[in-house]
Write a protein that binds this DNA or RNA. Structure first.
Length: 178
DNA sequence: CCCTGATTCGC
DNA sequence: GCGAATCAGG
């Protein structure tokens, strides 16, 4: 793969948004994180701008959680709604964590399944999966937003504890998994 | 062990 | 210019 204008543009964009080199490499495909880092340096983009107080952003969510939710309802029998913060993607190494911050809002429509813990997906791309990351697919493979759960899977299998349960459940009993 | 970016240096 | 190998660090 060579650095076409298009790929360079995407690189610049993602880098400025705070994604790590490995994640950008996964997005671009065909290149290693080292290649990305090398390119970033050659382009002299190393210093990602910001001096922002990145961290503080992910915590002001719960207040308006209900209104900003865009997450998804899920989990068998459970009646929880996951709210993914729509934190503005931006600068800083911690932006990603903020982006993935999740807020659980308790709701009771049906009987809550006390033992069901809704996982916080790390939303890894295919190339980011490793031996111990949950490989539960989320979304449409043909869609840009397609990703994998990515949570800790342990040595026991390909899925995290939560998705392991779903994986071995009759499809008819599954609800939306993410 | 997982991950991060930075640097070096042969190609 | 490119990126694998390596380094230093969390």
């Amino acid at each position: 793969m060579n650095w076409t204008d298009e790929r360079v543009e995407l690189l610049k964009k993602l880098w400025s948004e705070g994604l790590s080199a490995s994640q950008i490499a996964a997005q671009l495909g065909g290149v290693s994180r080292n290649a990305v880092i090398g390119k970033v340096h050659r382009l002299k983009l190393s210093g990602r701008g910001k001096t922002s107080t990145t961290q503080a952003r992910s915590k002001k969510v719960n207040t308006t959680a209900a209104s900003t939710m865009r997450g998804n309802v899920q989990s068998s029998g459970a009646s929880q709604t996951m709210v993914r913060t729509s934190v503005t993607k931006s600068v800083g190494a911690t932006a990603l964590q903020a982006e993935y911050a999740v807020e659980a809002v308790a709701r009771t429509v049906l009987k809550p399944a006390a033992d069901v813990v809704v996982p916080i997906s790390r939303r890894l791309s295919l190339l980011q999966l490793s031996e111990r990351t949950c490989k539960w697919p989320v979304g449409d493979p043909l869609n840009e937003d397609f990703h994998f759960c990515g949570n800790e899977s342990g040595d026991s299998g390909p899925y995290c504890t939560y998705h392991s349960k779903l994986a071995f459940q009759p499809a008819s009993e599954r609800r939306r998994a993410r």
